[in-house]
Design a protein around this nucleic acid. Structure first.
Lengths: 245, 245
DNA sequence: CGTCATATTGACTTTAGTCAATAGAAGTGG
DNA sequence: CCACTTCTATTGACTAAAGTCAATATGACG
């Protein structure tokens, strides 16, 4: 698919559980209206709007966010390349949250009309897209477990495990190293922690040699140890994704 | 649909955003394999299993739960009559959480084969089911906002608003009164709070006359006041559901 | 070199948790 | 209907986790 290499990341993700047909893939490739670039902090989809396109991340990090009246922000999901971050708007009339760029990123747009056509004519692809949303919901549920029952230390360790597997699945981790362009504020907003506390927990993780950071680069010397500290169980990301090392 | 009055609750919910076709409704009615009864505490679907049927709640309350290694429990969702509580298993191979009965309840089972057939032949119904899962995800995200950024007092107030609207939508609330068969432990497990603290916050809500309880009956004298205390915005449940009173 | 965002540190406060005892309510068997 | 068990709700005293505020450092960038 010359000119659209990013389609590969998407199809790879959609095929994680079951293969797509050739018809699925070619139709999907034809769905992309445009690719738009955003800077960190820019709003990709605004709360309260009713978009006529859905989008998926091609490059960079995005997040689903909700601003509260008192100015605090909650991040409900991080989205990385290959993630559909807004199939939601295809199904529900009004956005109850925003999607924003957490790093410079590029986002591909797919019109709802095209998705409608998929639902009408390509059951296999429909199921794959539906499943992709189900996978997101599974991540949501794990975050709820983290927020409700894990200590802040475990929460952060858990997220770092999750991001390793997710980034690795789209080829954005090299061994146990990946780039995490999130600020401590972002991490805090994801778990309802203060920046100060996130900072302290990261330090604790560094002291325990569970993580090593160099700028935005994150290296995990011993995945097993970090997973244990986080009580991390990869089932929710799709079984069998946690490799040996 | 004699003999299957509960189908009505399900179709009513699925039609909240867009109407179903006659073909959709009749096929759906023919999907129900059986209806099974469970007592409070019983597991409806076990974590780690790979069910070949999905189910929806006909009567009573169920919850998605996850037990952690240290014995604590996290509730990720409450499910009431009309809710599909396990479309998840149609899409993903292994259950990463359990579904359990929080009150005596009856659950209807639908085989995955039937759902597969829906995806292949009834795009309109497929979209409705997909949308239903999207609505669940929206609730998940709101809970994350609650857990992350709302005080425990607000969290509980928020949930009580949510349950009013959800129960009302399936005809299980009379005015501003409904039956909530949850223990304070259940509420705590949903938000990661201790039972003691839930108890205190409920008392505070009672003192402020925001709620009045009689056993499991809950009466909300002034919905507007409770909604305000909770910073409740009903958009995520589908716009326009919050009525005047 | 200066500016702005991000990260770090320390002192103190608040929220919610823990532990332990008591009170109520619902259900069971005789 | 009563005695008994059990689950659920309530209370008080104390603790711990995480937040707040404010100052300082570090780093990226024009």
């Amino acid at each position: 698919m010359p000119g659209k290499p990013f389609i590969v990341q998407l199809t790879r993700k959609l095929e994680r559980h079951a293969p797509l047909l050739e018809a699925d893939k070619s139709f999907l490739a034809g769905c992309i209206d445009q690719v738009v670039a955003y800077d960190r902090g820019e709003t990709i989809i605004a709360e309260g709007s009713s978009p006529s396109v859905s989008c998926f991340v091609v490059e960079g990090f995005a997040a689903r966010t909700k601003e509260l009246a008192d100015g605090t922000r909650q991040i409900m999901a991080f989205h990385i390349p290959g993630d559909f971050c807004d199939l939601h708007s295809f199904l529900l009339a009004v956005m109850d949250h925003s999607v924003e760029a957490l790093s410079p990123c590029r986002v591909a747009k797919v019109s709802h009309a095209k998705i409608e056509e998929i639902v009408k004519t390509l059951p296999n692809l429909t199921k794959a897209l539906w499943r992709d949303m189900g996978a997101d919901a599974a991540i949501h549920r794990q975050w709820m477990v983290s927020m409700g029952r894990r200590s802040s230390y475990e929460q952060i360790a858990h997220l770092l495990c999750e991001m390793l597997l997710r980034l690795r699945a789209v080829g954005l981790a090299t061994g146990n190293t990946y780039e995490l362009p999130l600020t401590q504020q972002d991490l805090g907003d994801a778990f309802g922690l203060s920046t100060v506390h996130v900072n302290r927990m990261l330090q604790a993780l560094r002291r325990g040699n569970l993580i090593v950071t160099k700028g935005k680069q994150l290296y995990i010397p011993d995945v097993r140890a970090l997973a244990e500290a986080a009580a991390f169980d990869a089932t929710y990301l799709g079984a069998g994704l946690l490799p040996s090392a």
